[in-house]
Design a protein around this nucleic acid. Structure first.
Lengths: 224, 224
DNA sequence: GGAGAAGTGTGTCATAAGTCACATAACTTT
DNA sequence: AAAGTTATGTGACTTATGACACACTTCTCC
């Protein structure tokens, strides 16, 4: 499968472009480039000009925001097939968060200038974009509540459930990363995981978490 | 000034429609209705169908989200001239937050069906809407960081500064409301305010806060 | 295979905030 | 003006979590 066709599939999967016609999709896909990232490499930082949209071909990219004091909060975790940077590509303003490769990755890149030119040629797409943006706004609000009003066990359970949906019952992530992910200290994460291990909800290995009892975990995620 | 003309001014002020032509604006304004709310009356709740956009003609409306356990977090505080419900009116999905009148209020109402019909007639406006939505997304991200990564004094100072910008140095709000506003217990708010009073940063009265030293307050808001 | 690095397990302690329980104080209503 | 209601002030206690410190276990690389 050509690079372009692969990108078209990613676009199609991502709701933003889900109901574009095959022809529109193909013309859009033809505009893409690719880019490689080493593990830990920074793709962009807060404040950088937002001049492209990215799709993950393989690998993993963390979207995170850092407070001035160094505490970080991971907003999202993009895996194969995920798109990000839609906002920056539309309005061209600077990035609101940092993006770092969580492992060696390859990305599809759709540059702003190319995308805008496309939108100009195909105004019907603009209408669909509005719906996507609304969806994004809603998603953000939910995320907001989740991360601040809920206690750590709930946040942690939710993250694990979300990761399980992407990667199956064997989640490959360090406790440190998981800590950053839910906005908590590594030690706190560890203690909670230990407690759950004693309840046979999961098992722990170096850099890996094996989810044993998703039923209980989702119950915790729903806040009992 | 007619009701419609007044609504047109509000629309014009609110960036969403800032660069619409006077003619477009007028046709849009003609679609509005008005609605009255008593103090404490609920305009809509999370989950209600999102079938309208609102503009505050006079009064005050709180946009807040409630966790299941009853803890609440006020996301925004809409005063005269503010618009809200743009997202729901565009995608028609259910409300993501609650809206309650903070005092007796009068609202402009623009119904979804009317608005969509308008957009269909004037496709150029759709493009401008995209920019607004992007802006909204960015604003939300900032809000998110503010409210969760910062300690209470910082959040409180920021809110007071924001309120001061709207209402001057005499902010008319109860400590209870302020607590809901920054997502903290009333008592904690009180203790912090007391501490600031001892430092001559502000003065307290029943239902009222007098800001004495905005310099220090903004310093705290910037996290020292 | 030895040295170091990276990840993990756990104890102790400090601290910010929430909760509860009142005591006032200030407005409202009758 | 008496009674009730709402807003505020404050102390005592609890709890969740972060911070530090350190032991122990894998992995990796020379």
């Amino acid at each position: 499968m050509s690079k372009q066709a692969e990108f078209a599939v990613i676009l199609k999967m991502n709701a933003m472009f889900a109901d574009l016609g095959a022809d529109e999709l193909q013309r859009l896909s033809n505009l893409c480039h690719t880019q490689h990232l080493a593990n830990g490499e920074v793709l962009f930082q807060k404040g950088d000009p937002g001049d492209a949209l990215f799709g993950v071909r393989r690998g993993q990219v963390r979207i995170e925001t850092g407070a001035s004091d160094g505490s970080r909060l991971t907003l999202n975790f993009m895996g194969s097939g995920d798109l990000f940077g839609e906002v920056a590509v539309l309005d061209g303003q600077s990035r609101t968060a940092d993006a770092t490769a969580g492992e060696a990755s390859e990305l599809f890149v759709l540059r702003r200038e190319d995308f805008l030119a496309f939108l100009e040629r195909e105004p019907k797409v603009a209408i669909k974009i509005i719906a996507l943006l609304c969806q994004r706004i809603r998603w953000q609000s939910e995320r907001m509540e989740e991360s601040m009003l809920q206690p750590l066990p709930v946040r942690l359970a939710r993250r694990l459930c979300a990761l399980a949906a992407d990667f199956g019952s064997e989640v490959h992530i360090s406790q440190e990363q998981l800590g950053v992910f839910v906005g908590a200290a590594r030690e706190s994460v560890n203690r909670q995981l230990q407690a759950w291990r004693k309840e046979a909800i999961l098992d722990l290995q170096r850099g890996r978490i094996l989810l044993r009892n998703m039923t209980k975990l989702t119950a915790i995620a729903r806040n009992e």
